[in-house]
């Protein structure tokens, strides 16, 4: 049973208070390779390692079933800053 984009997003939304979440399927349909961006105030005051550990724990079952998983975890403030930065350069 392949892990779907919708499943990943639903599990994340159920466990973490997200401002924004984007699940990208890079597998070309086989459900093996995902890149996830999560913006949440739950990440405030946590190191990147702690944030990733939190997401790994939430998606434990799913990550075990897929081949490649990459994540970005930002606080709302960092997200805003990164949006501004990319707007400024484009």
């Amino acid at each position: 049973m392949p892990v779907t984009q919708e499943e990943l997003e639903a599990v994340i939304r159920a466990a973490i208070q997200v401002t924004y979440v984007n699940v990208e399927d890079n597998s070309g349909g086989c459900g093996e390779k995902y890149a996830v961006l999560i913006v949440s105030k739950d990440f405030e005051g946590k190191t990147t390692l702690a944030r990733h550990r939190m997401v790994n724990e939430v998606l434990k079952t799913q990550i075990a079933q897929i081949h490649a998983f990459t994540q970005k975890t930002l606080t709302p403030q960092q997200w805003e800053d990164s949006q501004k930065a990319s707007n400024a350069t484009s």
């Binding site: 990147t48 390692l49 990733h52 990459t70 994540q71 970005k72």
Partner: peptide, 10 residues
């Protein structure tokens, strides 16, 4: 422990 690929690249 430092992290995996995402963390090291970051």
């Amino acid at each position: 422990f430092i992290g995996g690929c995402d963390i090291v690249l970051g």
